[in-house]
């Protein structure tokens, strides 16, 4: 058995073990079922809630909101990152702002946004965009910084045009950072949009979880919670696998 296999197996065992332990603690009554449902019950509740169709519109709402915020933040983040990289003076001036951006608990701006746009998807898109875009921007800057100057010199020696330099040299060299940015942007968009739905919203998965909590509907609450966690984890794992494949191809090349 090679090393990679062993790592995967151990990881699998770790996760399964943790879930089994939780199940055991819940079934034996060490953890009060009013506090935490057993994982099996949670999964059953999830299937039931999803199959009943009563949250389908909320699922669509949340995912479309995340998709819009994510797409916008990736496009704008890359463009703004490239712009800042091209204008060092602007970048130096923006530097303290960028460095402190995530120190700001910016979801507190969410109520202000609701007052601005009304209680619809717009403030959620805005807060998701605000959370995700800067991560993409910073990753873009990092990526552009890490393009080895020697590669650019080689590109010049081969007399590559601007576009070809960009797509054949700069983008591949910056790809790992761009990947990281994409992953962060997706996660941050999800986190802030669900948080926004929690605080103030009439629709969406976050709202439904908060609603179930307030009406002591533990089964729905844990079912939806599990659903959100599963979806986010699966999406991130897919991006992670894709990233690893990109990196492997690079190291082979």
């Amino acid at each position: 058995m090679n090393y990679g296999r062993k790592v995967l197996l151990a990881r699998f065992a770790l996760i399964v073990g943790a879930i089994a332990l939780l199940e055991l603690l819940c079934r034996t009554g060490v953890i009060n079922p009013l506090t935490l449902l057993a994982p099996s019950a949670m999964a059953a509740a999830m299937v039931q809630v999803i199959a009943s169709g009563q949250v389908t519109s909320d699922i669509i709402r949340t995912f479309s909101t995340v998709a819009i915020a994510f797409a916008a933040s990736v496009v704008v983040g890359i463009a703004a990152g490239a712009l800042l990289h091209a204008i060092p003076r602007l970048r130096r001036a923006m530097d303290p702002l960028l460095a402190s951006y995530y120190a700001m608990p910016f979801f507190v701006f969410y109520p202000v946004l609701v007052a601005f746009f009304g209680l619809n998807a717009m403030p959620l898109i805005a807060i998701g965009f605000a959370a995700a875009m800067v991560a993409m921007l910073i990753s873009t800057l990092n990526g552009l910084d890490r393009v080895p100057p020697v590669m650019l010199k080689v590109a010049r020696m081969h007399r590559l045009g601007r576009l070809r330099t960009l797509f054949l040299v700069v983008v591949p060299a910056a790809a790992p950072s761009l990947m990281t940015g994409t992953k962060l942007a997706l996660a941050y968009a999800f986190i802030s949009i669900i948080a926004g739905e929690f605080i103030l919203s009439g629709k969406g998965l976050g709202y439904q979880i908060a609603y179930a909590y307030n009406s002591f509907d533990n089964r729905t609450m844990y079912g939806l919670m599990l659903f959100v966690l599963l979806v986010v984890t699966v999406m991130n794992s897919l991006l992670h696998v894709w990233e690893q494949r990109l990196l492997r191809r690079r190291s082979r090349a």
Binding site: R11, I15, I191, M221, M225, V228, V232
Partner: peptide, 25 residues
């Protein structure tokens, strides 16, 4: 190598959803 992706996954989950659990605990 075993735990890093698990930690990264935990980092990216919306932890707000866990607030009922934390409150109950």
């Amino acid at each position: 190598d075993v735990t890093e992706p698990v930690l990264a996954a935990l980092y990216t989950i919306p932890k707000v959803t866990l607030y009922p659990v934390i409150l109950l605990l």
